[in-house]
Design a binder for these strands. Structure first.
Lengths: 247, 247
DNA sequence: TCAAAAGTGTTTGGGTTACACCCATGA
DNA sequence: TCATGGGTGTAACCCAAACACTTTTGA
């Protein structure tokens, strides 16, 4: 039997996939690393978890140090622990993703930060990032795609006031499909989670759209009452619907 | 800036929620701990991850050392890292669950194993277990409940040959609901993932049931073709169906 | 008046639900 | 012959999907 001391030589980090939505594209916030290893390379923001800090706390800290944002949607996804994933020793990393409204975002790069610079990169343009971050990003994106079918998360990525078309474009970006405008509006409005602000877009060169706001209070009330939101769309293959199986 | 050395003083473990199905109940395999901390207390099987071992590998090892089983369904769920969750120092744990057929199971308790004994405990009878294992168990069970709606996992928990009633009882145990017999059979059979073995139950004091087997080859073929299985049942609240929202 | 995006209803098909009685076997 | 669980079909309903034209604004 090995002495337990041999096990207390590891470290762990959190890495945070920060999603934002801008110009019709789903984007991720990447940093240019200001430290070894992978100095100067693009990577997901992340850092070691401090001894007196729990995992969620570390994820919040990483996000806050970089963006100044607190109280945003944050969810743990998966832990990556390949033996040689970090050149400095045994380091496993707990991956989180968060959803922020890019309009709220103010880039904060502290002196001595792990990041030299930070940049929003469209998901499809991400390539060659440090560590196993490509796998982490893929896993988090997949989780987001699933979650968004069952919970009204889209609003986290939009400004307070938004149009239904913006919301639809966001869902299309996340789900990587096209959605039918009329059906989308019917479903979204049937949730009863949108407040019609009785305001209009201004200064657009076409018919202005109505502005809506997410009714967070009502959502939390629904949750408390035990309602389950299932935003799922059915899945098809070759235009043929695949049957559900249970019940 | 702290020296990185300060971070390399932690350890991590895996804990494994091993589900089995027996006598109409969903059960978990618990061990009586043969080591400090929590010596003599019931806990989930788990152990430190060795320096040369990745996380999935450690989960497989823990399972295999205890049950002798390999190649079973195993899925990482969540990582728990509260600062004081382990009395010996900073130890985070990666939680997995696995699904096994209790008929295949042969308890192996090696000398010097971390377990003094092991026992199948019905989910509802689990109480007062070591560490934060209650939270881990809850998280894994929740994951199982979700997964089983979308993937044909039930078969992992049954003997090779089973009856439709056994399968239904299993789903009822996992989902903690009652299911309609006729509708359940219709859906399950419409999956086309069951092989009718043309055999019958024997020695039962009632009309014998047909035996079926899961068609794993066809399932994998379907997966490869991109089919998505959605075994979801709709959710109700007060008998009123809650609308889906997307598309 | 033109371009651009907003906004709006109806029909159809398929899947989910609810529901009750006869069958085969061993005791 | 009785108790026990096995096995089967249909009708109603609801939701998802498909689909096209009019409206409003700024340029």
């Amino acid at each position: 039997m090995v002495s337990l001391d041999n096990f207390f030589k590891s470290a762990f980090t959190v890495d945070n996939v920060i999603f934002g939505f801008d110009e019709g594209d789903l984007k991720v916030l990447l940093i240019k690393r200001g430290e070894q290893p992978f100095l100067g390379k693009w990577a997901l923001p992340g850092y070691f978890v401090y001894p007196n800090e729990d995992l969620d706390g570390a994820a919040v800290r990483v996000l806050e140090e970089l963006t100044g944002l607190k109280n945003v949607y944050l969810e743990q996804v998966e832990t990556f622990g390949d033996v040689n994933r970090h050149p400095f020793g045994r380091v496993i990393t707990v991956a989180y993703y968060s959803l922020i409204n890019t309009k709220d975002y103010i880039l904060k790069l502290k002196a001595g930060s792990i990041a030299q610079q930070a940049e929003w990169v469209a998901l499809k343009d991400v390539n060659d990032i440090a560590f196993d971050h490509a796998a982490i990003l893929a896993s988090c994106f997949q989780r987001l795609q699933r979650r968004v079918r069952h919970r009204p998360l889209g609003f986290e990525l939009l400004p307070k006031k938004f149009t239904l078309t913006q919301l639809q474009q966001l869902y299309e970006a996340i789900l990587q499909t096209e959605l039918d405008k009329r059906n989308f509006r019917k479903k979204i409005l049937s949730m009863n989670l949108l407040i019609d602000l009785k305001e209009m877009q201004e200064g657009v060169a076409h018919r202005p759209a109505k502005l809506y706001q997410f009714d967070r209070a009502k959502y939390e009330q629904f949750l408390a009452e035990g309602y389950i939101f299932d935003l799922s769309e059915s899945k098809k293959k070759n235009g043929k619907k695949v049957n559900g199986v249970l019940h």
